Amino acid sequence: MAIDLVGLLCEATDDLTRLYPKPPDPFTMYGRFLGWVRRLPANPSKDGRFHKQE
């Protein structure tokens, strides 16, 4: 199921990029489509990397 959702994530990102001048936020898109696969922190750090929450 996760593999299917990755394909849908790519399609949705392509569609949104065509519809709007500003591309969608990758963190939000990942959370929406694949957030259930692996938990992500609520906010990435300022350098854009994800760090393990304590």
Rank of each mutant, 00 (worst) to 15 (best):
M1L: 07
M1G: 12
M1C: 13
A2S: 14
I3W: 13
D4Y: 07
D4M: 03
L5H: 06
L5A: 08
L5M: 10
L5Y: 11
V6M: 10
L9G: 01
L9S: 05
L9H: 12
L9V: 05
L9I: 07
C10K: 15
C10T: 07
E11H: 09
E11K: 10
E11S: 11
A12W: 01
A12M: 06
T13W: 12
T13F: 08
D14Y: 10
D14A: 12
D15P: 00
L16A: 14
L16V: 04
T17E: 05
T17C: 07
T17P: 01
R18S: 13
L19R: 08
Y20G: 00
P21E: 15
P21K: 07
P21N: 08
P21C: 05
K22E: 14
K22Q: 13
K22P: 00
P23H: 10
P23Y: 08
P23S: 04
P23F: 12
D25R: 10
D25H: 07
P26C: 09
P26L: 02
P26W: 07
P26E: 03
F27K: 01
F27E: 01
T28E: 15
M29I: 07
M29T: 00
Y30I: 13
Y30D: 01
Y30S: 06
Y30W: 04
Y30T: 13
G31F: 05
G31V: 07
G31E: 07
G31Y: 02
G31W: 08
G31R: 09
G31M: 02
G31K: 15
R32T: 15
R32P: 00
F33T: 11
L34E: 02
L34G: 02
G35D: 04
G35H: 09
G35I: 08
G35Y: 00
G35E: 08
W36R: 09
W36S: 06
W36T: 05
V37W: 12
R38G: 02
R39C: 02
R39H: 03
L40W: 04
L40F: 09
L40D: 04
L40Y: 10
P41T: 11
A42E: 15
A42I: 12
A42V: 06
A42R: 14
S45K: 14
S45D: 15
S45E: 14
K46G: 03
K46F: 07
K46H: 12
D47A: 01
D47T: 09
G48N: 06
G48M: 08
R49D: 14
F50G: 01
F50A: 02
H51R: 12
H51T: 10
K52C: 02
Q53K: 04
Q53G: 03
E54M: 01
E54P: 04
